[in-house]
Nucleic acid binder design. Structure first.
Lengths: 181, 181
DNA sequence: GAGCACATGTAATTTGTTACATGATTCC
DNA sequence: GGAATCATGTAACAAATTACATGTGCTC
């Protein structure tokens, strides 16, 4: 089977400093999560597949007090990651937002209820911006310290500013709808 | 089985003016697509399930020159749609963006290549904004004419302005990265 | 010693995608 | 007469989620 997006996520996270499956799980949770989600159970079988293909090598980590299997990229794995990063396959944006779907259908409910939904959307983005600021950005800064990577912090900044922009946008829509009551 | 997001998409689209499965497919393509995608094959079985549950009624459309099955919401279906719209279940934003994932990992490639990736992201949003403007917004305006619904046009406006914002954001990042060369 | 975080998995189910299949009508 | 669009599906496959399962080590 060919490499999937999950494969590249794993390769990329190993390049960004993760060592074990658990590391990857945590890093995704603390960084990529707002634009790429993955369930932990996908990670371990993927690590095995990548090892079989020779893109990563794994060894049981005996220094660690717990059972722990550490992996690192092979030359082949790094090349493969770079080829993917620079290749120009299609990059569809797949947004899947129930909140927006509800907004789209808001003609079916009372104006007051629509306003209250828009408020919920605004609050959702407020919470998201706050979370990105307090958790994701510090984690990115830490990765920059430890691994010298600069792009995770840029991605975090994009996330924060995106949700701040949304907060303003929904705020304006709220005022607009209130004026029409 | 309980109702899924696909169920509500179908109910909502019937409320917004769609009559047949094919209508729904087209409307999704021309409206919700940028925040909610669905494959056509999911629609027909879903219509059957909803009819069994009494949320919609279907009848073979004999006026139409082609084979065509038309559906409409029952009172139960409309109530169900409204309850979903006003209910406050969780609304996770599920963004799944390979382009952003690649940006996140861009430390693994040469600065010039990273810049060229950011440019590709900018161009992607330019194309998306253009497409929303030339296709999605007119379709929403038409729905407003025909069905009196106002929110599809608002959702389209959000999409356009979002991508315009992204174009500017990526443009700024591009300049920043070029300055660092 | 209780609870949490670490650490790795399996099995079953649900969901979504791709490829395939069919046939009518409209437009050029 | 050929291409595009209308219109509805089936079957096989791939991907993702949920629930379950297990055990260790650290901190309070």
């Amino acid at each position: 089977m060919a490499l999937t997006n999950t494969s590249y996520l794993v390769l990329g996270m190993l390049h960004t400093g993760a060592k074990s499956g658990y590391d990857i799980k945590r890093m995704v949770e603390l960084s990529a999560r707002f634009f790429w989600k993955i369930s932990p159970v996908q990670i371990y079988p993927e690590l095995q597949r990548l090892e079989e293909k020779g893109l990563i090598t794994g060894h049981d980590d005996l220094q660690s007090p717990r059972r722990r299997r550490s992996y690192e990229l092979t030359d082949l794995g790094l090349t493969s990651l770079r080829n993917w990063l620079t290749g120009n396959d299609k990059m569809p944006i797949e947004l899947r937002d129930i909140g927006l779907l509800k907004l789209f259908f808001a003609d079916a409910i009372e104006p007051e209820q629509a306003i209250s939904h828009v408020r919920a959307l605004r609050e959702r983005s407020e919470a998201m911006a706050e979370r990105l600021h307090s958790q994701i950005q510090p984690a990115a800064a830490e990765a920059q310290e430890a691994e010298g990577v600069e792009f995770p912090a840029r991605a975090a900044r994009l996330g924060i500013e995106y949700h701040e922009w949304l907060v303003e946008w929904y705020g304006r829509l709220e005022s607009e709808l209130e004026a029409e009551l």
